[in-house]
Amino acid sequence: MRYRIFLAGFLAAMNLAASEIDLDALKKDYRRPTDIPQNPDNPLTPESIELGRKLFFEPRISASGLMSCASCHNPSLNWEDGLPTGVGHGHQKLSRSTPTILNAAWNQANFWDGRAETLEEQALGPIAAAGEMNMPLDKMLEVLHAIPGYEELFAEAYPGEGITEETVAKAIANFERTVVSNEAPFDQWIKGDEEAISETAKRGFALFNTKARCSLCHSGWNFSDSSFHDIGLKTDDKGRGGFLGFESMNHFFKTPTLRNVAERAPYMHNGSEATLHDTMELYNKGGRVKRDTLSGDIRPLNLDTDEIEAIIEFLKTLSSDDSEMHMPRLPTLIAAEN
């Protein structure tokens, strides 16, 4: 009997925490920024962004001549591919899912294991990777030099620097920085429109920041602090531990943004969670696998069905009606002969 009374009191306290939390103070942490973060060594310019856009959609810098960055980071699918794991050169299945480019300017680390800290460091990796675009970088430069239109585009974007690995990386990085999710109903609520999201979604937001512990990592306007964790997925992939050589960080993967998350299934580095309900079940259980590397921040949450539904309703308010991305016209060899 004493146990039951204690439990009831505990649950009442948790509900109180969710409903009486100071939402106004919390909402300040989620305001949209007004500017895109830039790399001081690679300032955003219209010319570098446009060159990067062309390179992002350029299939001729792949070994097959068919794959571009956009083949996997598909703007029609929230800059992902909608697959559990990516598909690379020769249609081979890759071991990790394609992370979105959305709001990449705010990433403090790139790739699921965080091995590239800037977008410039990241940009050439998939082009050269044998399993992905499979294009040796010296061959990539040969291809770009052979298409006369690019010489002028590089000269406009990076005067005096030429067509180099560095300028290719800088241009792609700057284009990626401009891929930003639009204002979602959640943002309108943050700005003061109380009608923008439902009362259930507001309760879900409160739970997200309290009992459900999501905001320990999914924090700020982009809902990620770029941190790395083992959240208890069934996987042999060592993730960040493999990159750093730290056994204590085996199965650690980067915290992704939650912007447009309801449209970005399946979830996780290996696509192992098919739906948002599956993902909530994973966290509610405190992970599917218990092991030494499991994050100390992951633990059973004791969320009931209504609470889970409220959190999912809140997550859906993060979806924005984003601008459509049109395919760029690329310089061609035929044009060069005219």
């Binding site: 790395f228 964790h229 750093l244 730290f246 650690f252």
Partner: peptide, 9 residues
């Protein structure tokens, strides 16, 4: 330079 491998900043 001492860092946290969980939080890169």
């Amino acid at each position: 330079l001492v860092r946290c491998a969980v939080h890169l900043d």
